[in-house]
């Protein structure tokens, strides 16, 4: 368990999510403040930003006091000087998920946030160029949402006898 830096927003819930991983569960309002405090505290690298859609798994285990929402943004920060990772899980909202963009802190999160927007429709406030990155521009829907079908095409065997 790490001590959060002194200038982090008050009231952020932390928990050991697994053996070596330390999790922080800020609210949407605390999120940006927490990340900037952690950055000032020596977490130089934003390793990963991704979204998760908990539509079919709402009863996941969260520490006391965290209000689960459908969408979650998961940020992995890495401190090279301390050789430590911290994982931040923000409950991003259910109907119109939105969190602050980390672009001003970590410019390298630009593509990863765009990917989360493209795949989940999570809005990152303050992102300079929040457009689709992987799918075509005119694509409808956000493919990794749980209510978006996988788009499986039934396999056809053209030479097979009889009507199918």
């Amino acid at each position: 368990m790490i001590e959060l830096p002194a200038n982090a927003p008050a009231g952020v819930i932390t928990a050991d999510v697994l053996k070596s991983d330390i999790g922080c569960f800020p609210t949407r309002e605390q999120y940006f403040g927490l990340v900037s405090a952690l950055k000032a505290d020596g977490f130089e690298l934003c390793a990963d930003v991704c979204g998760v859609d908990y539509l079919e798994y709402a009863e996941r285990s969260l520490p006391e006091g965290v209000l689960p929402t459908r969408f979650e943004v998961v940020v992995n920060l890495l401190s090279m000087s301390r050789r430590q990772r911290v994982r931040i899980r923000v409950q991003a909202g259910t109907e119109s998920p939105a969190v602050d963009s980390l672009f001003t802190l970590y410019p390298g999160s630009e593509a990863m946030e765009r990917e989360a927007f493209d795949m989940f429709g999570i809005i990152f406030n303050g992102h300079p160029d929040l457009t689709r990155i992987l799918m075509p521009e005119d694509w409808e829907g956000h493919p990794l949402r749980k209510d978006y079908g996988a788009g499986r095409v039934p396999v056809q065997f053209k030479e097979a006898p009889g009507p199918r």
Binding site: T104, G108, D129, T131
Partner: peptide
């Protein structure tokens, strides 16, 4: 600064989210 530079070089060919 590095952050501003990457914003400048990374997203300039799009305006207001349009291609």
């Amino acid at each position: 600064p590095a952050g501003e530079l990457s914003r400048e070089v990374g997203s300039v060919l799009r305006v207001d989210g349009h291609a």
